[in-house]
């Protein structure tokens, strides 16, 4: 199990940041991701896997039109 923005989410081996964003339907292009307080560059979302027990924070960089 991992936590994404404070909510529990099922973990599986090989789960990537991109998988998490797709599962959560986080489609906004300007997103910042931190795993255990360490930032993940946007171009590494597909290549970055998360471990069981990780704390993932997904920040949408938007404050309206």
């Amino acid at each position: 199990m991992i936590r994404v923005n404070g909510e529990e989410m099922e973990w599986r081996p090989g789960l990537t940041v991109k998988d998490i964003l797709e599962a959560k339907r986080f489609v906004f292009p300007m997103i910042g991701v931190w795993i255990n307080d360490k930032p993940v560059p946007r171009d590494k979302f597909e290549a970055t896997t998360v471990n069981d027990g990780d704390e993932v924070q997904v920040i949408h960089m938007i404050s309206g039109g």
Binding site: N5, G6, F26, F28, Q57, V58, I59, H60, I62, S63, G64, G65
Partner: peptide
């Protein structure tokens, strides 16, 4: 009007 603050993602999605 939304010219003062648009906090929906910050509050509800990001949980900040």
């Amino acid at each position: 009007q939304h010219d003062e603050a648009w906090l929906i993602f910050m509050d509800r999605v990001n949980k900040q």
